[in-house]
Design a binder for these strands. Structure first.
Lengths: 208, 208
DNA sequence: ACCGGACTTGACCATTTGATCAAGATTTAT
DNA sequence: ATAAATCTTGATCAAATGGTCAAGTCCGGT
């Protein structure tokens, strides 16, 4: 007789399956309407479950929001984390910016969810910002500063350069309707070339 | 005996005064919590009026929101509009970027209000985006292209360059809590130098 | 086949919130 | 001073919404 599972209760097939479709629906709803603007009813309707059923898996609206937010945070850090100090700066930065753009175009809802959270004061992720994010940025800013010191990059304010990369890349998700209103549906490859050109041309030596 | 005012009824002193404080309060509330997240009660409390009194001046919540949004749109276009084709590109772009940063730091709430509106699909300003904004951007992109053709700027994708300027400058308002979490309260002049360097170093000839 | 636990939901509740209204207070024009 | 217009608000309403519950259905292991 196996001792009954204690705390980390094993998840049922139905359980993990439903949690997943709920979080998928919640991402769409919250990113489109904001935390307050999105309703449990909307999420339930979108994933074909009843409202009480949603609340069987997540006891409060806040729990749904936190879960969907957390699910995106890890992916958010990943591209920057993989910036390799030992490799060629131009290659690495090109790769990083391209990866960010892939996220932007591949998962715009996630970008908008995060943007909305920050925009409204980051009530749920303040700890994340001051902890893991700050540490990662500080570390990678150091990498960039070393590249500058080694003459592999023209002098640039490392931290603000990272901010610029975030701003420009995420812009195509967060402000997508504005971009679309002005140039229509953007061509990804053209965006990529333009963004790389704008951000890198100034700091890669021997390109001017 | 003067004929009674017809449609554009003259505004009372009290009326224009109260409308102003209402819109000021509404800007703070809506930019902090979003359209759906901000309540009439919050706005009323912030400006010291009763809720029915607010609704005496603006019949619906939506009217308040539209009014405060419209009040910011004009100011939003102004800096770009004043980009002078006849002047020196480096000077003009420096001035434009600086003006945008002044808006960012001087009126962060307005920036966040606008960002929130776009982020959620621009339900109230779709016409503005496709009309006045697109026209202005198209016109100014032409100016930049002419500068490029005249050899006064290195080749750059004009429209995407304008997007990059918006993205990077507004980032310091829209993502202020993230910036603050990472570097603390930013020094405006340092931000200005860093942003100008990142955005312009690559495209102004003879700087590398 | 059957039993216990997991899952599902219609009905319901309490609170929040946008909006109304009638009655009273204040301002303005004469 | 006084009447008309403007302004103000307590009380109240209806709808939306987060959340509960009891009662039923379904699933998995034996």
């Amino acid at each position: 007789m196996p001792k009954p599972q204690a705390k980390p209760e094993r998840k049922t097939r139905i359980q993990s399956q439903n949690e997943e479709i709920i979080l998928d629906a919640a991402l769409e709803v919250f990113s489109a309407y904001g935390y307050r603007g999105g309703t449990i009813d909307q999420i339930a309707a979108r994933c074909g479950l009843s409202k009480p059923n949603l609340l069987y898996y997540f006891r409060r609206k806040d729990d749904i929001y936190k879960a969907v937010l957390e699910r995106t945070l890890a992916d958010w850090l990943e591209p920057l984390r993989s910036l390799d100090p030992a490799a060629d700066p131009a290659t690495e930065l090109t790769r990083y910016i391209s990866a960010k753009l892939d996220l932007t175009f591949g998962r715009p809802a996630a970008s908008r969810l995060f943007a909305n959270e920050i925009l409204h004061g980051a009530p749920h992720v303040a700890r994340f910002l001051k902890g893991p994010l700050k540490e990662l940025v500080d570390a990678k800013a150091l990498v960039i500063r070393r590249w500058v010191a080694e003459g592999k990059l023209r002098p640039v304010d490392a931290t603000h350069f990272i901010f610029a990369i975030w701003a420009v890349t995420q812009h195509y998700a967060d402000f997508a309707v504005q971009v679309e209103a002005i140039i229509g549906t953007p061509d990804r490859e053209r965006v990529r070339r333009a963004v790389l050109d704008i951000l890198l041309r100034g700091i890669i030596p021997g390109r001017g």
